[in-house]
Design a protein around this nucleic acid. Structure first.
Length: 591
RNA sequence: GGCCCCGUAGCUCAGCUGGAUAGAGCAACAGCCUUCUAAGCUGUGGGUCAUUGGUUCGAAUCCAAUCGGGGUCACCA
């Protein structure tokens, strides 16, 4: 790699001419800023303490050295303490050809490591909302990026399928539905069940009016209503294994899963394994026992098991209820252990909202204290909420937060815009529907993925989904353009052979950017941040559009120029397609 | 109140382990389609990088404090 090589050469120079031993990593090699001439820049300020010379003189000496030693350096310029190197055209041409010849460019060899990636994690009492969408897009993209850099990835989902929430839907259904089904009323299963959840809350409010002398706290008051008590009863019946309750529970959850599967398919996300809280909620008690025996956990006077994390700057945390039943963290401890036994993974990533930062700190600490070496590989991919311009999306606030509605809306926008532009003659209805889907989802997915996960997203339903500028469709459009060029090139049956030996600035920049692709992937994986890839692809598309605008490709003045530009075009298209795929986005061949 | 995260152009966001005159998009205005897709390209205006202090050759970036916004501190998940 170029930067590494320059660092080595610089370090060797310092050693030979000045007897200085320095860490290669302490030498900064950057891309040269636009306003200066050059491809890469070595910052020489830190080197002056070894050379004992001024920054300018140091840069000049190093420049001379590199120019004579490294045959890839064409010229150099010194600006203050910056050494700007321009590499030879043949170096860049060679890099381009290496990329073109490498069929697995952007797919690094296996690193022998396995990662379990948990994402989505919905409750089964209501439909998916925009928060889940961010979660799923992040989780899916992260998984694909990790695969690309050499991990074996097992994506898993966890369903919170039991407890008071689903029982509320069940109670309302039993009371008011008269045996209706999603099929009978023509409603998607998860929405169907969610509607009964809403109905439950309405019923609570109605019954509340008949209760005098109720507490000020609304949640406390609700617990006094008959229908709420019925829900609590149902939780107990469920835990007791009452057949009738279990049957209804299974039926309603199955409706929900059917609905979820449809949304997953629409978003293009997948899971290799599902976990259900109803199956894992009792897990973890043996770990609690182990912790007690090792003296890491302790039993409080009231019987609850706790861990003291005050030394780590946290609090004392309850891990098991005083009545001996599991709570969230108990089962998460158990599930983690279970997964390690099943998969023997090197890393486990949880894509979960940042509200649970504290929980995952505790979880990781507990496992580490228990001596689980693999716990070091736990990473909480924490992401911030998606908010409306007026603040947090409330599930009751309306349609805008619902995942399915959101998807439908972006598809509609894509169709409207595509029709308006009218470049779609000759496409069948199926092809058109496919195109709207690709573009609409591209807009939505890119909008969410381009933002750093730890930053909150302000989502304005009216304005946020754009098809111009820094967007998914912009990148998709660039790909469609590239395809159009390549189609026409094929017709003329040209064979790229000889290349021209000088590079236009736009060509040079594109090639440089293409050579950064694998590094970007590694970075995105190491920082668990798909937005790095998203922004890289935007830069790439932008550079290509500039190049496309400024230089004729098919009608280039000379054959070597034409061949070079076609190769650049082809490789740019390839990286766009690949990178977008990792982010979960498709690219059309025309639009 | 303790702890955690965020604060960059009117709006939405980049800015890699400290490096040159802080960048994109949207919105506004002005241009570019007899040549490969104008969902594009070019230009103009727009900034006390929340504030103050510190670290050093150099700070949007690191440290501390302050001010704003959010989260969390449940035997909920």
């Amino acid at each position: 790699m170029l930067e590494k090589r320059l660092r080595e050469l610089t370090a060797r120079w310092l050693a030979q001419d000045f007897g200085a031993k320095i860490e290669e990593t302490s030498i900064t090699v950057n891309h040269t800023k636009k306003e200066h001439e050059g491809d890469v820049t070595i910052v020489v300020f830190p080197l002056t303490r070894y050379t004992g010379k001024s920054p300018e003189e140091t840069a000049r000496l190093l420049g001379e050295k590199l120019k004579s030693d490294a045959d890839i350096v064409a010229t150099y310029h010194v600006v203050k303490g910056f050494l700007n190197l321009t590499l030879t055209a043949s170096y860049w041409l060679n890099e381009l050809q290496k990329i073109a010849a490498n069929t697995s460019y952007g797919m690094l060899p296996s690193n022998g490591q396995r990662v379990v990636l948990e994402y989505c994690g919905p409750n089964t009492n209501k439909p998916l909302h925009i928060g889940h969408v961010r979660n799923m897009l992040l989780g899916y993209a992260m998984g694909e990026i990790l695969k690309a850099v050499g991990y074996e990835v097992i994506k898993v989902n966890i369903y919170n399928d039991r407890g008071i929430a689903i029982c509320k839907s069940m109670v309302a259904y039993r009371r008011f539905a008269n045996g209706a089904t999603p099929q009978s009323v023509g409603v998607k299963g998860d929405h169907f069940v969610g509607d009964w959840y809403v109905k439950f809350n309405e019923a609570v409010n109605e019954e509340l009016q008949n209760i005098s002398d109720k507490p000020d706290d609304k949640d406390e008051a609700a617990k006094l209503t008959p229908i709420y008590r019925e829900a609590q009863e149902m939780v107990k019946k469920w835990e007791a294994g009452d057949p009738e309750t279990l049957a209804l529970w299974k039926q309603m959850n199955e409706w929900v899963y059917e609905g979820f599967r449809e949304t997953y398919r629409m978003l293009g996300v997948d899971f290799q394994k599902d976990y259900y809280e109803s199956e894992t909620y009792k897990l973890g008690k043996d770990i609690i026992e182990e912790g007690l025996q090792k003296g890491i956990f302790k039993k409080r006077a009231d019987g609850a098991v706790v861990i003291d994390l005050t030394e780590e700057g946290l609090d004392e945390k309850v891990l098991l209820r005083s009545d001996g039943t599991s709570i969230y963290i108990t089962q998460d401890l158990g599930t983690a252990e279970l997964r390690y036994r099943e998969f023997n993974m090197d890393k486990m990533i949880y894509v979960v909202a940042n509200e649970q930062d504290y929980h995952f700190k505790v979880l990781k600490l507990c496992l580490q204290k228990l001596g689980r070496a693999w716990a070091d590989g736990i990473y909480h991919l924490s992401y911030a909420l998606v908010e409306s311009p007026t603040g947090r999306f409330k599930s009751r606030e309306g349609k805008t937060a619902d995942a399915d509605d959101l998807i439908a809306e972006v598809l509609r926008l894509a169709e409207e815009k595509t029709r308006e532009l009218g470049k779609i003659e000759g496409l069948t209805d199926e092809q058109l529907a496919e195109l709207y889907r690709i573009i609409g989802l591209g807009a939505l997915k890119y909008f969410i993925l381009r933002v750093n996960p730890y930053k909150k997203i302000i989502f304005n339903p009216e304005e946020s989904i754009d098809l111009h500028g820094h967007t998914g469709p912009f990148i998709q459009y660039t790909h469609a353009r590239i395809c159009a060029v390549l189609r026409k090139a094929d017709e003329n049956d040209e064979v790229p052979g000889v290349f021209c030996d000088d590079l236009k600035p736009e060509e040079r920049e594109l090639i440089i950017h293409l050579t950064n692709y694998e590094n970007t992937l590694r970075n995105a994986a190491a920082t668990y941040d798909p937005s790095e890839l998203a922004n890289y692809l935007y830069q790439l598309a932008k550079l290509y559009n500039k190049f496309y605008h400024d230089w004729p490709i098919l009608n280039a003045a000379t054959e070597p120029e034409r061949a070079l530009r076609l190769l650049i075009t082809q490789q740019t298209g390839r990286i766009i397609r690949q990178g977008m795929k990792l982010l979960g986005m498709e690219v059309p061949e025309r639009m």
